[in-house]
């Protein structure tokens, strides 16, 4: 029996197929017990459920309580972002999940170390640009510099792009860390 033939029978069972929401990028702060395997649980959740990880940083932040802060940058539709937060919250060692992007009051920073090899004019230009970006020289030889730069990811991207023609040979980045403005804690 085809009780209702008005509805077009095209799309599939699966939610993604009919999802018309636009993907967004969100930064999530996840406070966890620093116990063995906790990072594997978080990463396994992302890979197992097909979520993206664009950046991930983790370190113990509360030594006395053995708690770590994981900052993860992810993309997805609002419904998927909501799922990610709920799924993270479900993990037993997870204390809190805060959507730094939603709260709208967070500061995000990243640190990069940038190795540039070169001589002559290029070397001078690299140094001049580094100064403009407030990057610090943390190692130098007659043919190389290592710059340390901190800032928003876009600033680092820009700096790296500028260094590329000037002899950039290696970049090491921490990934994003975030914290909320004002007196309140997570």
């Amino acid at each position: 029996m085809n009780a209702n033939a008005n509805i077009p029978s095209s799309t599939s069972h699966y939610p993604t197929a009919t999802n018309v929401q636009k993907p967004e990028t969100h930064t999530l702060s996840v406070l966890v017990d620093n116990e063995p395997g906790v990072l594997a649980r978080v990463i396994g959740l992302f890979s197992g459920r097909g979520y993206n990880i664009e950046s991930l940083t983790v370190s113990e932040t509360e030594h006395a309580k053995h708690q770590s802060l994981i900052t993860v940058v992810t993309t997805g539709t609002p419904m998927v972002i909501e799922q990610i937060k709920n799924q993270l919250d479900r993990l037993v060692p997870v204390h809190r999940v805060v959507d730094m992007t939603l709260s709208g009051r967070s500061i995000e920073r990243e640190l990069a170390m940038v190795k540039v090899r070169g001589k002559g004019d290029e070397r001078v230009e690299a140094l001049r640009l580094a100064d403009a970006f407030r990057a610090r020289v943390i190692d130098a030889t007659t043919e190389s510099f290592i710059f340390e730069i901190t800032g928003k990811s876009e600033k680092i991207e820009q700096f790296v792009a500028l260094m590329l023609p000037l002899g950039l040979v290696e970049v090491s980045r921490t990934g994003i860390v975030a914290i909320a403005r004002g007196p309140d804690t997570m």
Binding site: M1, N2, N4, S9, T11
Partner: peptide, 28 residues
């Protein structure tokens, strides 16, 4: 698969199963 709630096939409906399913439905 791939159909809505009000598009169900009943046992004695005489609808041939082959006609009842869309190409995309077969992927599910």
């Amino acid at each position: 698969s791939g159909k809505a709630h009000n598009e169900m096939i009943l046992g004695d409906s005489g609808v041939s199963l082959d006609d009842a399913i869309t190409e995309e439905g077969k992927m599910l």
